[in-house]
Design a protein around this nucleic acid. Structure first.
Lengths: 69, 69
DNA sequence: ACATTATGTCAAATATATTTTACATAAAGA
DNA sequence: TCTTTATGTAAAATATATTTGACATAATGT
């Protein structure tokens, strides 16, 4: 599956660790790691929570992630 | 939970039934119904498939659905 | 050298998205 | 009236998102 490099970059630009982001949105570090590495398919509520914490929208971080390899 | 009236409207404007949309995106009618009625929290891949079929983006159909009551 | 932080990954358990089957109602057409 | 289509809903089963606990490595600071 495709990695989500936009998410990784947005997180990095705020100087947040995977753990920081995970705690901010109420999931575990492994979940954030898996999303960034494309291992699975999060729920929309989680995506929205991540977007809000990173100051991005769904289209910016998750739209057409499938093509972005 | 909040109903997704934007989704319902977008589907209606293309004259698609819940069943039509469900088949187009590879889920059951009950899943589309539940999403429209806010009973749960679909996966991002499913949201993207729905958006593509309806000619909308994630932000247009799913962004900040939580507030939209 | 040692401790700490960040990341990657894995196996087993748990929570929940989704399916299957089924029943009910309202609207529309024949 | 009868049939069909669209929708809403519910209970039990299945698939999968997510957690928990653990181990490993690289980088950084003391």
């Amino acid at each position: 599956m495709a990695k989500n490099l936009r998410l990784k970059a947005a997180r990095a630009s705020l100087d947040l660790s995977q753990k920081d982001l995970a705690e901010a949105v109420g999931v575990t570090r492994q979940t954030i790691n898996a999303i960034e590495n494309g291992d699975y398919n999060p729920t929309i509520h989680l995506c929205i929570a991540i977007c809000k914490r990173l100051g991005k929208t769904l289209d910016q971080l998750f739209w057409e992630d499938e093509e972005n390899e």
